[in-house]
Simulated scan of single mutants.
Amino acid sequence: MDWLQIFVLSIVQGLTEFLPISSSAHLILVPVFTNWDDQGLVFDVALHIGSLSAVVLYFRHELVGMTTSWCRSVAGRGTDDEARLAWWVILATIPVGLAGLAFEDTVQGVMRSPLVIAGGLIGFGLLLAYADWRHRGTRNEYRLSWRDALWIGFAQALALIPGTSRSGITMTAGLLLGLSREGAARFSFLLSIPVIVLAGGLEILHLADATVPVDWGALIMGALLSGVSAYLCIHFFLVFIKRIGMQPFVVYRLVLGVALLWLFGGA
Rank of each mutant, 00 (worst) to 15 (best):
246 M>I: 02
181 R>T: 00
19 L>E: 06
255 V>C: 08
165 S>W: 06
235 H>Y: 15
63 L>R: 06
190 L>F: 08
233 C>G: 06
46 A>T: 07
249 F>R: 00
40 G>D: 08
185 A>K: 00
159 A>S: 15
200 G>E: 10
84 R>C: 02
181 R>E: 00
244 I>Y: 11
210 A>D: 08
53 S>H: 07
26 H>A: 05
254 L>F: 06
54 A>H: 14
215 D>M: 10
10 S>L: 01
36 W>T: 12
183 G>L: 05
221 M>I: 12
179 L>C: 00
102 A>Y: 05
69 S>G: 13
68 T>F: 14
103 F>W: 10
57 L>T: 10
90 I>S: 01
184 A>C: 03
133 W>N: 03
138 T>W: 01
58 Y>P: 02
77 R>M: 14
120 G>V: 15
129 A>G: 12
126 L>T: 06
114 P>Q: 10
46 A>R: 07
57 L>I: 15
3 W>P: 01
195 V>H: 03
105 D>P: 00
19 L>Q: 02
97 G>F: 01
149 A>D: 07
201 G>D: 12
194 P>T: 11
143 R>I: 02
58 Y>F: 15
127 L>I: 12
43 F>R: 04
188 S>P: 03
252 Y>W: 12
207 L>E: 07
154 F>S: 07
166 R>I: 09
226 S>K: 03
149 A>I: 01
206 H>K: 13
18 F>C: 02
153 G>C: 03
128 L>I: 04
223 A>Y: 08
165 S>K: 10
166 R>H: 07
182 E>F: 07
204 I>S: 05
5 Q>W: 06
210 A>Y: 03
169 I>L: 05
123 G>L: 15
34 T>E: 12
203 E>D: 09
77 R>D: 09
38 D>C: 09
123 G>M: 12
266 G>P: 08
115 L>T: 06
62 E>L: 08
220 I>P: 06
113 S>I: 09
64 V>M: 07
235 H>M: 11
227 G>M: 08
129 A>N: 08
127 L>K: 04
215 D>K: 15
97 G>R: 09
106 T>P: 02
121 L>D: 01
184 A>T: 00
88 W>G: 06
136 R>P: 08
72 R>M: 10
213 P>T: 10
29 L>R: 13
47 L>S: 04
93 T>Q: 04
113 S>H: 09
267 A>M: 13
127 L>F: 12
133 W>E: 02
136 R>Y: 02
95 P>Y: 06
86 A>K: 01
225 L>N: 01
87 W>R: 12
12 V>R: 07
237 F>H: 04
86 A>S: 08
45 V>R: 00
227 G>F: 04
199 A>V: 15
163 G>A: 08
264 F>Q: 05
22 S>P: 13
66 M>D: 04
96 V>Y: 01
3 W>E: 13
77 R>S: 14
37 D>A: 12
132 D>P: 02
135 H>R: 12
